[in-house]
Amino acid sequence: MCQIKIDPKRCKHCGICIAFCPQEVFGADCRGAPVVERAEKCTACGLCVMRCPDFALEVGEKGK
């Protein structure tokens, strides 16, 4: 379980985090914005943070 923070002011709803998370942690709301649906599956690999074009994601350390 990790803390996943999405900054709605920066997020542009491109869908990259939703599509490429290896653990399929994210789902989408009706506007296409990412929502954390399966936080317990997050391994804190950081790929979503690195691939987010908008600096909108922060993921805490595993277990924090």
Binding site: K9, C14, G15, C52, P53, D54
Partner: peptide
């Protein structure tokens, strides 16, 4: 995960690039 933020001028975000543009990813790298 946080050290790189030192090089980012966060006060200028959100940036001007289109949704899904790769520039932000390259900037992060």
């Amino acid at each position: 995960k946080t050290a790189w933020k030192e090089y980012l001028e966060e006060s200028m975000l959100p940036h001007m690039w289109c949704p899904g543009c790769g520039n932000g990813i390259a900037l992060g790298a």
